[in-house]
Simulated scan of single mutants.
Amino acid sequence: MASKKLGIGIDLGTTNLLVYVEGNGIIFNEPSVVAFDVETKDVIAGGTDAFSMIGKEHKKIKVSRPLRDGVISDMDAAKAMLKYVFERVQNIRDFHNATCLICCPSEVTQIEREAMRDLAIQMGIKDVFIEEEIKAGAIGAGIDIYSPSAAMVIDIGGGTTDVGVLSLGDVVLSHSIRVAGNYIDQEIIKYVHKHHNLIIGQKSAERAKIKVATLLEDEEEERVARIAGRDLVTGLPRTVNVTSQEIKTILQPIFQDITNVAYTVLEQTPPELAADIVDNGIIVDGGGALIPGVKEYFESMLSLPVRITENPLTAVVQGTKVLLRNKGSYIAQHKD
C-alpha cells in the first residue's frame, strides 16, 4: 500500500516566506531573504537573520531577496532559501513523496508559474501545483469559497495587491497591481529624500510605515517616527521625525490606485455575484490590511461592507491546508 503523500503549502511572498507542512503546522514565517558567502556560495543565514544584514553587508557577504513583485527574480537564491527552511525541520527528509502547493499572484505569466514549479521540482518534489493567493487567502480568512455565494477579496501583500471574486471553488475574475507594501516603502524613501534631504534605506522606511502609517481621517493623536539616514547635503548621519499625517499623504494616492482596481473588478462582476458581494462585503488580507483605517477607507470609497481578516499575514498559507487536501478541485471538496 502506498504511503500518504506529505502536503507542503508555500506562500512565496516578496516580503515574507511562509511554509506549512502537514502534521507540523506553519514551520516558517520570516522575511524572504537569504545571505551567501560570496566565495563558497554557502548559505550563511536566511529569514530574520539574513534580513538583519540588509544594507550592512561587506564584499564577502551577499544578501539577496529571491522575489521581486511577486515573482522569482533569482532562482538560485530562492532554491537556497527553501533548502535552508526545510533543513530546519528534521523529520522532513523525503521530498519525493510530497505534494507541494505554491501560491502566486493572480496575474503572473505562465512562464513565471513554470519558474515556481521548477523551483519545487529542483528541490526533489515531483507533485507540484500552483494556486492563486486570493483563493488560498479567502479560505484562510474563513470563507467557504465552494458555496455558490460570491466572495470578494483584496489581498495587499508585499509585492502585489490582488483583487478577485470567487464562487463555486474558484476565481471568477481577478486583477493584480504591483502596488503594495514594498511600493509604499519606496514612496516613503522618495518622500524623505525630497522633503527632508535625507537618504534612508528600505528597512528604515518599513519601520516608519509600521509605526505611524494610517488612513484614519480623525486620528486622536498624531504619531511620530524617528528615522535615521545620511544627510543629502553634508553626507553625515542625521535623524528626522516623520509624522503619521505625512505618511497618510503618501498612502492616499497608493490606496486610490488599489481602489481603482477594485472598481474594475466590480464593474466586470456578473450581476448575480455582484448581489452576493452587496450582502457578504469584501475581505481584506495581507500585510497592508494592518494599516489603521483600511476598513473605513474602502467602505467609504466602495460603499460596501468591509472586513479585515483576523489573520491577515498568515491567511494565504493557512488556506493551503484545504487546497492541499483536494488539489484545488471543486468536486473533491463538494463531495466531502
Rank of each mutant, 00 (worst) to 15 (best):
M1F: 11
A2V: 11
S3D: 09
L12N: 13
L12K: 01
L12V: 08
L12C: 06
N16C: 00
Y20V: 08
E22N: 10
G25E: 10
I27P: 07
F28W: 15
F28T: 00
F28M: 05
N29K: 12
P31Q: 07
V33Y: 00
V33N: 03
A35M: 07
D37E: 11
V38H: 07
E39D: 13
E39P: 02
T40A: 13
D42W: 05
V43H: 05
V43G: 12
D49S: 14
K56V: 03
H58P: 00
I61H: 06
V63S: 07
S64V: 15
S64L: 15
R65N: 09
L67N: 01
R68I: 13
I72M: 02
S73C: 12
D74I: 05
K79P: 02
K83L: 14
R88L: 06
V89K: 09
Q90K: 13
I92R: 00
F95H: 05
F95S: 00
T99H: 04
C103S: 14
E107A: 15
E112C: 03
R113P: 01
E114W: 03
M116A: 11
R117M: 12
D118C: 09
I121N: 09
I125T: 05
I125Q: 07
D127T: 01
F129R: 02
F129N: 00
I130N: 06
I130F: 05
E131L: 06
I134P: 06
G137Q: 05
G140K: 05
G142W: 09
M152T: 08
I156N: 01
G158F: 11
V163F: 06
G164A: 11
V165H: 01
V165E: 02
S167H: 03
V172C: 03
L173T: 00
S176Y: 02
I177G: 00
I177W: 04
R178T: 13
R178I: 06
A180S: 12
I184D: 06
I184K: 04
D185W: 07
H196T: 00
N197H: 13
K203F: 10
E206K: 08
R207E: 14
A213W: 07
A213L: 08
L215T: 08
L216S: 10
E219F: 10
E220Y: 03
E220F: 07
I227R: 00
G229V: 12
L232R: 12
V233K: 10
V233H: 13
T234K: 05
T234F: 03
P237D: 09
R238W: 08
T239V: 10
T239W: 00
N241Y: 02
T243E: 12
Q245Y: 10
I254R: 03
D257F: 04
Y263M: 10
V265N: 03
L266C: 04
L266F: 01
Q268L: 13
E272M: 09
A275M: 09
D279Y: 14
I283H: 01
I283V: 15
D285M: 15
G287W: 08
G288W: 12
P292D: 08
P292Y: 06
P292G: 09
P292V: 04
G293F: 10
G293W: 02
V294P: 02
E296F: 06
E299R: 11
M301Y: 03
M301H: 10
S303M: 14
L304R: 11
P305V: 15
I308A: 04
I308Q: 01
N311R: 11
N311P: 02
L313Y: 06
T314Q: 11
V316H: 04
Q318I: 05
R325N: 14
N326W: 12
H334A: 14
